[in-house]
């Protein structure tokens, strides 16, 4: 269980990373924290020709709160975000979800953007990014662009990132004072991939509800400010639309039922905080 051979480039500037990506495209992988990529290398599931290490780029290490947005650079580790006052204040949904990402020992190395790049359908950070209506800042030697989370995640471990692009940051809209958020997750064991994860953003006028672990990517719906059985019906319709996965750990009906029950509970929790 040892990785196959690859070249290793330690980028000393974003431009160098761009140049390497331009040269190797799909044959290259960016390595940041490596918490997902390294085991894929060791299992020889991934066989890049080149790894581009971006963790020496100081410009990617910032958590920047600017106006009504929070920008988290590609070099920011999950533990750093969890300890950040800006994250706690401006993105409490992210702060609530981060303790569910792996374990403390992997959060110390793993990055937020790495999780977004990997786009595991059960991962918490892509779910939060989608629920909050955040975006992904991509760049290449050609151009910079911003892709909304809704357009970024295209399927199982698949994203809108082009082969020569790297994620520079994720951008989250800061929490509005009239909103409240909640996050709930269930996995077989603590720290496991979510069987179902729910994120809710509620305001007096409506509900944003997002679900991870069920479809092949995180999915989101916006509801008006429903309550009672109309809310249950709306969640139920969403649960059916999710095309729930069956796997070793959960059946599709069980996943849907968790969406109904945990989804409702998550929305209620967010509402309690709003009140």
């Amino acid at each position: 269980m040892k990785p196959p051979n690859f070249d290793y480039i330690r980028a000393e500037s974003v431009a160098e990373a761009h140049a390497a990506l331009a040269e190797y495209g799909g044959e290259a992988r960016v390595i940041a924290g490596g918490q997902t990529l390294v085991p894929m290398l060791s299992m020889r599931l991934a066989r890049p020709k080149v790894l581009i290490d971006i963790m020496h780029l100081a410009e990617l290490k910032d958590i920047a709160a600017k106006g009504d947005a929070l920008r988290i650079g590609a070099g920011v580790r999950q533990a750093e975000a969890l300890a950040s006052r800006d994250v706690a204040e401006k993105a409490p949904l992210l702060a609530a979800a981060l303790p569910w990402v792996g374990h403390a020992q992997t959060r110390n190395r793993g990055t937020l953007c790495g999780s977004v790049a990997h786009a595991d359908p059960s991962a918490e950070i892509p779910l939060v990014l989608l629920a909050l209506g955040g975006s992904v800042a991509l760049s290449s030697h050609r151009k910079r662009r911003s892709v909304s989370a809704a357009d970024f995640f295209t399927g199982m471990m698949s994203t809108a990132r082009a082969d020569d692009e790297m994620i520079e940051a994720i951008v989250l809209p800061a929490k509005r004072p009239d909103t409240s958020t909640a996050f709930q997750e269930f996995g077989r064991r603590h720290g496991d991939f979510a069987i179902v994860a729910c994120a809710a953003v509620v305001s007096p006028d409506g509900i944003t509800f997002a679900v991870g672990g069920v479809a092949d990517k995180p999915e989101r719906r916006d509801f008006p400010a429903l309550d009672g059985s109309p809310l249950d019906d709306a969640i139920d319709a969403f649960a059916w639309e999710l095309d729930a996965r069956e796997d070793l750990h959960a059946t599709a009906p069980y996943r849907r039922e968790l969406v109904r029950r945990m989804g409702r509970a998550t929305i209620e929790e967010a509402r309690r905080c709003l009140a």
């Binding site: 269930f186 077989r188 059916w240 750990h249 959960a250 059946t251 009906p253 069980y254 039922e257 109904r260």
Partner: peptide, 18 residues
């Protein structure tokens, strides 16, 4: 497993509206 227990505890799934 929870999914196995759910078969007993959650009962029959509500039928989809669509």
């Amino acid at each position: 497993s929870p999914a196995k227990i759910a078969a007993h505890l959650h009962g029959a799934e509500r039928t989809p509206r669509k």
